[in-house]
Design a protein around this nucleic acid. Structure first.
Lengths: 349, 349
DNA sequence: ATTAGCACTCAATCCAGGAGAGTGCTAACA
DNA sequence: TGTTAGCACTCTCCTGGATTGAGTGCTAAT
């Protein structure tokens, strides 16, 4: 569907105004703020057309118009220009990342904060499951009498650990030997490929150190299952309190509940995700719970797997700013992850 | 101040009703629900007395009465009997703890969930700073070419780690040697006693392995400073959305902001905390931000230090249930921590 | 000391009327 | 034929008065 220049201009005016004020915008307001040299009456005619085409709608007959979801969609697809964060803001983000380097958790936290602070929307980051990254090494480390630590390192440098109890007769040397065995068996495999059958095999092979092996396997098994798969970090959830559309307690509660636990959020994003910025407006969302909200998200690539970052806001969202910010941040993460650059970056390949 | 039996009964009725309904309660309601054989008029007279004494108050002349904070205080101090969680609920908690054993994080999470779920209030747990527990051991572990992991274990079994870059010439054997040195220097000290001067000393002593030592020290130093001190876990924050007193957005925002970050919450609790359950009602709280809320909290003892658990709710709170639950959970935590019992409990001394 | 009865108070609810913002339509105009 | 000015119309929101109802305080009787 092609709109002529004037209609596009009017649609844009309505969107910008409505996003800023959350109030329906009338014909007068459009001519006043965006001084075209046409009269309010003309604008009214055009707006009537736009309404018929489905890009605008009226809450009731004697109110102004608000953009429909289709209107937003048209704007996003055909007219929008991303608004990137300012250089100072980018600078700030780089600073945050430098400060928190080495610590994966801090990095993610920092990015989340940044996203939500700059845009004033709730942000989320989904870190891909470690199951899909490669097993790098396993170590068994004595930490005190009768206890050892199972330490697993993946190729992208994520560290997981679990304590196990061991018989007192086992010495540090034995532990090391057992660890080496694991490494020979598994090195380079993806964690998802480490099947239980493999584990069983190993177990059989080492009857004499049964107990430690069993415990280690159990711990490893446990780690593979554990909540490390697809870690979700949410930031700035309270930003939605600012939006007038959520003054209703029930709505508010439903939305915030989404954020309180990690599970639900995963469900609302598409399984497959492309690398660029993607936008889902209101009803376009599959999940029932967020059909009155919009998503702006993107995938980032890390060690071969896709992670996701994005923003959640009302349908009346500053898509240009959201998309610009998400895209910028995505680029920065990609750089960080995949640079085989000069000085020590976060993760080496 | 001593109240006669009838006044006490009436005060209790008003409190119970008001807590349940959030509405002022009138004289008729009192006689109807708590069938005394006195008339509404008599109750009115008594309520007028109670109001004069400051235990009740009237939102406006033609409404019922609501308990004042002083009224709640009197009830809590002189009349209340704790309502403990049911046996089934306790059972559930034990189950949760067993399932998540070995993993400190899961335990805390589990307890938090339990507290907030059973009571319908927001719960918090403050885990005492690791600075005050003892250094147990430090290990340097090679994880890949040019990278090593600094692993610190404290006496209560908390594991902290940080990655550092190391020169490629350093071999696993060297790392081990360096780790041993650290251990000899620090073993058994409280982390808070590991002064920078000690670190400096060590550094001087080991000129030849300067680079690794420096990096390790930096990491250690970093760990000592890091957010591990007084970890705060909040659960069920959204429960306060249910309370009608927070239908006001601004209030709601202020309160939820307290929960979104860990910092503020520490500020609202007294520094020193006794072992039993303590209750702060509304204005009794020091911190400005929660003068319209109540706290029910207790300290638990772990490896010599005090941790804190508790609930945050409206002044119109089911103190009996809150106090009973907090006390029960406190006992269970204490058992868990300090049992040198038969089967493997969470942390051994 | 207790109680029944009654007048009084005050928030909440409802309803009508007016103001205001904005529209749609028509007729005039370029 | 597209644009504009003007006007009647619609609908929400606000305001103010009347009504309702729960609950009190007081008084007089028990």
């Amino acid at each position: 569907m092609i709109l002529d220049e004037r209609k596009r201009h009017i649609l844009e005016s309505v969107i910008k105004d409505y996003v800023a004020t959350a109030e329906p915008v009338g014909s007068r307001a459009v001519v006043r703020k965006h001084a075209l040299n046409i009269s309010a009456a003309t604008v009214r005619n055009e707006m009537a057309d736009l309404e018929e085409m489905g890009y605008l709608e009226q809450p009731h007959t004697s109110a102004g118009r608000i953009p429909s979801e289709k209107g937003f969609r048209y704007y996003v697809d055909c007219m929008m220009e991303n608004e990137n964060p300012s250089d100072e803001q980018i600078e700030v983000l780089h600073k945050i990342l430098e400060d928190s380097i080495q610590e994966w958790n801090d990095v993610v936290q920092g990015i989340g904060h940044f996203l939500s602070q700059v845009t004033n929307y709730a942000s989320f980051i989904i870190v891909p499951s470690v199951k899909f990254s490669q097993f790098q090494s396993l170590q068994l480390i004595p930490i005190q009498e009768g206890q050892a630590l199972v330490l697993v390192v993946t190729d992208i440098g994520i560290i997981m650990h679990r304590k196990i109890a061991i018989p007192r007769s086992i010495k540090a040397r034995d532990l090391q030997a057992i660890g080496d065995l694991f490494n020979r068996a598994f090195r380079g495999k993806r964690l998802s490929e480490v099947q239980r059958s493999d584990l069983q095999l190993l177990r059989d092979e080492l009857k004499n150190r049964r107990q430690v092996i069993d415990k280690s396997l159990e711990a490893l098994d446990n780690l593979l299952d554990s909540p490390h798969d697809e870690k979700v970090v949410i930031s700035g959830a309270l930003n939605i309190l600012k939006e007038p559309e959520f003054k209703d307690m029930d709505k508010l509660r439903r939305i915030l509940t989404l954020f309180e636990e990690d599970g639900p959020l995963k469900g609302i994003l598409p399984e497959q995700i492309k690398e660029g910025v993607d936008i889902r407006i209101g009803q376009e969302n599959q999940a029932e719970d967020i059909k009155e909200m919009s998503l702006v998200f993107a995938g980032y690539r890390t060690a071969g797997e896709m992670g996701k970052i994005g923003l959640i806001g009302p349908v009346r969202m500053e898509y240009w700013k959201a998309a610009g910010t998400v895209e910028s941040v995505r680029r920065i993460i990609d750089d960080l992850m995949n640079s085989s650059g000069s000085d020590p970056k976060l993760f080496k390949k």
